[in-house]
């Protein structure tokens, strides 16, 4: 693999983006890749837009993904997928949680409509999922991030046991079974 695999993780503060980014980065390192994982935090608990860049491959230089070079955009919120669309390469994959969190700056009516079809029109391959509903079924609304990771895993060259090992050491024991279920291992 000459060029690194580039993943953008996007969402809203409190959705567990930083944890999800850590899990991907550690799985990449465990799998023998060079890796850089950048997170913009400081505002994470305050409902702001959150963005994380994860890159892995034989060698990774820039901690940030150049525009138009992301292979996959994983988004925990619809509007945030659109916000960071510019990072995607032509025909890139979008793994999108069909959840809408209305920003404090606008009314619910002003929330952009048809985000999914607009991204499809731009030529991206969109995989949409209602992770909130799936999370509820698994037992906690707080594991939307892990449900999306489970979908992302299908596109990445890491072994299932590597994911499992990393998840096991990333989440508290009492939530482990729930997280493994959400990921799709159990």
């Amino acid at each position: 693999m000459e060029k690194p695999i580039n993943i953008i993780l996007a969402g809203v503060g409190g959705q567990g983006i930083i944890l999800a980014g850590n899990i991907i980065a550690r799985a990449a390192l465990e799998s023998g890749f060079d890796v850089k994982a950048n997170e913009l935090h400081g505002m994470a608990q305050r409902g702001g837009s959150v963005l994380s860049h994860i890159r892995f491959g034989k060698i990774v230089h820039s901690p940030l993904i150049p525009e138009g070079e992301a292979d996959i955009l994983v988004s925990l919120e619809e509007l945030e997928s659109l916000r960071y669309e510019r990072f995607l390469k032509p025909g890139g994959i979008v793994i999108m949680n069909t959840r809408k969190i209305v920003p404090s700056s606008i009314s619910a009516e002003a929330y952009p409509s048809d985000i999914m079809s607009s991204m499809e029109k731009s030529g991206f391959k969109v995989e949409a999922v209602d992770a909130l509903a799936a999370a509820r079924n698994t037992g906690s609304v707080k594991i939307e991030n892990i449900i999306l990771l489970g979908l992302l895993a299908k596109h990445l060259p890491f072994k299932q046991e590597t994911w499992e090992k990393v998840i096991r050491s990333s989440v508290p024991e009492k939530y482990l079974e729930m997280n493994l279920k959400a990921f799709g291992i159990l």
Partner: peptide, 18 residues
Amino acid sequence: GKKSKAVKELPKRPPVLC
């Protein structure tokens, strides 16, 4: 020879008091 893509005008999501 690559131009930066225009940032889309989207509703901002500023951090707020919890």
